[in-house]
Design a protein around this nucleic acid. Structure first.
Length: 638
RNA sequence: GCUGGCGUAGCUCAGUCGGCAGAGCACCUCCUUGGUAAGGAGGAGGUCGUGGGUUCAAAUCCCAUCGCCAGCUCCA
């Protein structure tokens, strides 16, 4: 007998060999219809999986988001099936489900073209219509190797060679069989909606030394409506793309003639940057940071000492000779900050010492990775280097991390992806230093009560770190905040940093690199997408545009704009010879928070008619009242 | 850097089979002084990314190259 415990705690008994599907049927018709796969003792299984003994069973239905994972995995198989029908000599690699879809890496004789994608999609529809049942065969690993060898599935053979399981499984649907752990949906006819999205290159096992395979991306959903909604969501997200909005809102530009990855901030973008920088300066001074400024080029000597020339050379621009001495454009701010630290012998009483700079650096990035403002070659890091004693390192890290979270929250970033990266195999520094600082980082995260992932061994060779990533409009993560320990630069063989401890002896301080925004360019790019270009009043380049109805009202409109600027607000006057509706449309498209329309009535009553960018009419009011609204918006950062 | 795709006016984009380079917006001039998302008329603006090739003839076909886009690798 099979004793089956269901999620509600109830237990049912069935004859040995009863399938998951039969259990579902015995409970209810609807459940049997909606069940996609089962989960036995926490492990996903097929509906035809036979039950025996004492088991916990959960049925995963279409209504559960995780069922999409299994659907998409199965659609990846259908895609591979279609590809093999059309291009029989294709070799298959791996085809997993991912967020919102799936992909399959394969090695065809010729790379896929967009037309191929259409053909593949059409062939997939035939597979779905044929409604092939998906079946499983467990075989010995050695047999599987033989089979894959015979079919020239080289990548599968390679994978099998690395697995240690005695038995592996194949899944078959119609004329197609694939090495796969499963489980799969019951039959190909149960795929209601899918679409192939793109074909790209992808290295085998993600290593650029390996052969580049072709990756086909697709998406699949339980209904045509959901598929449409997904495609619509992607379209909407594209409208928030910072590169598109950057052009439309006249925020920044990048010029082929000057070079890729080199950003030009236009007046409207630069205004916002200035607001951010002002806030940044204020918050740093408040927290005891000391502002410094360091040069943009430096003698190679400094990068020999720092080790950058040794470890970071690929990202640095070539040397320029100045009076026969090689100089480099700086890729990092740390050497400069360290030299400032080293001009004095410091007491433990002075630590933590926090040197901060909006420091512009230049790094060589391969042309293929440049991406608007999010990945560039010249950027300004909101950098700080903190020199701290082992004793106070824990509190300092808590403060730094809290600072980062508070800073991001100021801009409405609440949904953060946080990673703690620990000691890698190849590393410098004493084990106890690693241990102590990893503990401090972990403690800071736990104190803040945030969710985070631990990336074991993912730290830099010189120290452990916390990274905070923010998502762009298409869901791609970009690293912004970072808190990184460095056991390399302070060491004897590098800069040999020191402070005098309580006992009067020379000690080596810990050094922490940290950035809240990462770089102003990246942060601004993500910020544009985050707000969809509709910046809150405190950030908006123009907070209010004054719109005179006719020429006769220009002097009064001018007065209003001047008065607002006098009061510290950013106000424009649109005195062009255009109709009111035209000016309102343009100010709205520029996402200016407020439009102040002034005509005969307003001039006479000494008032302004206030319209919000969303279209809401706030009515007429005195300029004092409007200034209060602005003040309140700025205070609340809305 | 790699694989695929795309480069036409400042912007967004048409351009059929190889046969005189187009539209809307923006810009300039004039008219209009208009009350909450585009007032009217006229004008100017292009070496079709760049360099070769095929052809009587190339935006269009071929090759190379640069840039951009998607993904991979790498990264703030």
């Amino acid at each position: 007998m099979a004793k089956v415990t269901l999620p509600d705690g109830k237990t049912r008994e069935y004859p040995d060999g009863t399938t998951v599907r039969e259990v579902a049927e015995s409970i209810g018709k609807r459940l049997a219809k909606d069940a996609v796969v089962g989960e036995v003792d926490g492990k996903p299984v097929d509906l035809f999986h036979k039950l025996s003994g004492d088991v916990k069973l959960r049925l995963i239905t279409q209504q559960m988001p995780e069922s999409l994972f299994h659907l998409r995995h199965s659609v990846a198989h259908v895609m591979a099936q279609a590809v093999l029908r059309l291009f029989p000599r294709t070799k298959l690699a791996i085809g997993p489900p991912i967020e919102d879809g799936f992909y399959y890496d394969m090695d065809p004789e010729k790379p896929f073209t967009p037309e191929d994608l259409e053909k593949i999609e059409a062939e997939m529809k035939k597979v779905v219509e044929a409604d092939y049942p998906c079946t499983r065969a467990d075989v010995l690993r050695t047999e599987a190797v033989e089979r894959c060898l015979k079919e020239h599935q080289d990548y599968k053979v390679e994978m099998l060679g690395e697995w240690t399981d005695e038995k592996v499984s194949f899944y078959t649907q119609g004329d197609f069989t694939d090495l796969c752990r499963g489980p799969h949906i019951a039959s190909t006819g149960r795929i209601p909606a899918f679409k192939l999205l793109r074909a790209t290159g992808a290295y085998w096992r993600g290593d650029e030394k390996n052969k580049q395979l072709q990756r086909l991306y697709g998406t699949a959903w339980w209904s045509k409506e959901e598929l449409e909604q997904y495609l619509h969501r992607v379209e909407e997200a594209k409208k928030r793309d910072h590169r598109k909005l950057g052009k439309e809102l006249d925020l920044f530009s990048i010029h082929e003639e000057i070079g890729g990855g080199l950003v030009h901030w236009h007046p409207r973008g630069s205004m916002i940057r200035h607001v951010i920088e002002e806030e940044w300066n204020r918050e740093h001074v408040k927290r005891g940071y000391l502002m410094v400024n360091t040069p943009h080029i430096a003698s190679e000597e400094i990068y020999k000492i720092s080790g950058h020339l040794e470890n970071y050379k690929d990202l640095m621009y070539g040397a320029m000779l100045i009076e026969d001495r090689p100089f480099r454009v700086k890729p990092m701010n740390c050497p400069g900050h360290i030299m400032i630290y080293k001009t004095h012998l410091h007491s433990y009483r002075e630590l933590p010492m926090r040197l901060a700079e909006l420091g512009t650096v230049y790094r060589f990035e391969k042309s293929g990775v440049l991406h608007g403002m999010l990945r560039v070659r010249g950027f300004t890091i909101d950098d700080a280097h903190i020199f701290v004693t082992p004793k106070s390192v824990e509190q300092e890290i808590i403060d730094v991390f809290r600072f980062a979270v508070e800073w991001l929250a100021k801009f409405g970033f609440k949904d953060l992806a946080i990673y703690l990266s620990t000691r890698p195999e190849k590393s410098v520094g004493a084990a106890e230093d690693w241990e102590r600082t990893q503990k401090a980082l972990k403690h800071a995260l736990d104190t803040a009560g945030v969710k985070y992932e631990v990336d074991e061994g993912g730290g830099a060779f010189y120290g452990p770190k916390i990274d905070v990533k923010v998502r762009d409009s298409l869901g791609r993560e970009w690293q912004c905040s970072t808190v990184q320990f460095d056991f390399n630069l302070p060491s004897e063989k590098r800069f040999d940093l020191a402070y005098v401890g309580e006992d009067g002896n020379r000690q080596q301080p810990y050094m922490v690199h940290r950035a809240l925004m990462g770089s102003l360019e990246r942060f601004f790019g993500v910020l544009i997408e985050h707000y969809g270009g509709a910046f809150p009043v405190w950030l908006a380049a123009t907070q209010a545009t004054v719109i005179p109805i006719a020429d006769a009202h220009i002097p009064y409109a001018n007065e209003i704009a001047a008065r607002l600027r006098e009061a510290g607000f950013r106000a424009d006057l649109d005195a062009r010879n255009e109709r009111t509706g035209h000016k309102i449309r343009e100010a709205t498209l520029l996402k200016t928070p407020y439009m102040l329309v002034v005509g005969e009535k307003e001039v006479a009553a000494k008032q302004v008619a206030v319209r919000e960018r969303a279209g809401k009419d706030l009515g007429t009011m005195g300029i004092d009242r409007f200034e209060e609204i602005l003040k309140e918006d700025v205070r609340k950062r809305t």
